[in-house]
Nucleic acid binder design. Structure first.
Lengths: 230, 230
DNA sequence: GCCCTATGATTGTCTAACAAGTACACATGA
DNA sequence: TCATGTGTACTTGTTAGACAATCATAGGGC
């Protein structure tokens, strides 16, 4: 499959590129984006640029008030907690449901395999397969709205990760091992245990992000306890 | 409080009125809304009308593809199930959390009082306080993103209800009694029982809506079992 | 030093227009 | 008859340029 053709609108194309640049860290937190700037950068009309910006605002990637210039959102520690708790909210319940049938979604297995295949590349590289692991679990319940809601969080989550990309907060091997264990617990029908491990998994990431942003981390930031075998 | 001043943009004003008309059933399912129509109706420029329409599309109230006229969404039985299961997903977990602390949000109590105060008015009248009851429970957990996600469902839920407004699927007294019982269970710290009752509450509404839309209802459509006292 | 005004930058909205796409009816061909 | 092509009307996508309203900042007056 050599890249399917994409006949998207100009608005979507511009929004997509801006998104990429934000995720790549090229547009840092708090950076301003005027409509005219975007318009001239991409050589489009201002209304088109405006529509693109509004799209990203709706996604939570940009922030703007009436008559004010849009800025890349600057997530504080409280927002990080808010985002991660909302994630855990959705995901833990998903794990319980999946454990009831014991189905392990193939896409999640593959995503975790991709994480394992990473050889100490750039720390940024783990983000994509990590995200894919979590989204594929969500998608496995087959509820369109739940998937949609989760995706509205994913943009902000990535933003968090970009912000602290260079800080090496996450140990790839640990991430991979915990994912693996979660999948095993699902297969074994142990939903509560899977949810508990997920809470630890997300809680640790959350509190380390908080600490890295200058907030005071909770106890979840510590190293993993005995939930993983040996 | 005599109607607070609203200095919103024209786009928002138009979108808001369209929303009201959709919720009031004035714009029925499948009805088309061209940009020029909207523009001339409200005497605004077409780009403004376009933006309003796109806002409603993002909310899930309108449906449209590229170069195609926007239409009021026509929710089928599968969508109704999807929406209600997503609701239950969020709400049941909320009840468990609220039960842990035993806090009963005052806004929910008030909303249910408003339902009780309804005297056999139009069947449509119960929708607003009913929604308010559920949203106030969600808001009580204090997570901005979860509240936002829930609100993205509310629009579609109301759409369902409008569609079957005249069918009298819901007995106001029963709704009110179940709400009351849910609040009691939260206060008593019985989160699981509250979640179970909520599931029954939503499941019944869901399957009756499905039946009313021509789908084949599940067993949840039946009268309430013994979960309520006497 | 502080408050107020003036200027510039930016956004909100409009008009007008053209390009491009969709949908439907119609005619043409096998 | 059915499938295919064509054409026209309608609708949306995008642009250009303009003006008003608002925000931010710098400068002057006290």
């Amino acid at each position: 499959m050599a890249g399917r053709i994409a006949a998207v609108s100009i608005v979507e194309a511009v929004a997509s590129d801006l998104r990429t640049r934000i995720f790549a860290g090229e547009l840092g937190s708090g950076e301003s984006l005027t409509e005219s700037e975007v318009a001239s950068t991409y050589d489009v009309a201002r209304p088109t640029a405006k529509a693109s910006i509004e799209k990203l605002v709706a996604e939570g990637l940009l922030d703007r008030g009436t008559h004010k210039t849009a800025r890349v959102v600057d997530l504080g520690p409280e927002s990080v907690r808010d985002i991660y708790l909302a994630r855990a909210y959705l995901e833990s319940e998903v794990l319980r449901r999946l454990a009831r049938t014991g189905d392990v979604p193939e896409a999640a297995v593959q995503a975790n395999r991709d994480i394992a295949a990473l050889q100490s590349g750039a720390p940024l590289d783990v983000i994509e397969p990590d995200m894919r692991f979590h989204t594929s679990l969500i998608d496995a319940v087959g509820n369109e709205r739940i998937s949609r809601m989760y995706r509205s969080l994913v943009g902000e989550v990535r933003l968090c990760m970009v912000r602290v990309q260079s800080l090496q907060l996450l140990d790839t091997a640990l991430i991979q091992a915990e994912h693996q264990r979660i999948l095993e617990l699902i297969e074994a029908g142990q939903g509560e245990a899977a949810a508990a491990l997920l809470d630890e998994h997300l809680g640790r990431a959350r509190e380390r992000l908080v600490a890295a942003m200058g907030g005071t981390p909770g106890p979840e930031a510590e190293q993993p306890s005995g939930l993983l075998p040996q």
